[in-house]
Amino acid sequence: MTKILVPYPEKCTGCRFCEIICTLENDGVINSKKARLRIEKRGIRNDIPVVCTQCIACEENCCTNVCPVEAIYMENGVVRIDKDKCTSCGTCVETCPYGVIKIVDNCAVKCELCGGSPQCAKHCIIGALKFEEPVKERYLNVKKMIGVG
């Protein structure tokens, strides 16, 4: 199975380094609002890494199904957005149950795993985000923790 980002909320410290490094890698700027993932804080106990599941655990609300111009496609286990096709209509943003698709510079953007070396997981030396073979339950657990679905 292809490796993707796997969240370990039980280890997450809430430092949000991942958000910062994400935008630096993907947009060349520092702006956590553009990050393709986020750390959701729920009270003192819960720091929850919310990441794209690459179609593993979105169930019926999958961005690949709703794009009206078919700009979103799956390639080798990674869900990608075709920038030339995207009209930035925002349907995918509305649909994503994890809220990790954004419109940046008039184009929908999402985690495409930094070309195979996701910077968030690389820098998360605490082990709250790992680049490994996914376990569906981990995403469903995140969904439950953030109160979706």
């Binding site: 039980e10 280890k11 997450c12 410290t13 809430g14 430092c15 949000r16 380094f17 910062i20 003192i44 720091d47 820098h123 998360c124 030396i125 605490i126």
Partner: peptide
Amino acid sequence: KNKACLSCL
């Protein structure tokens, strides 16, 4: 678990 300030690893 550990808790951190912003961007602290």
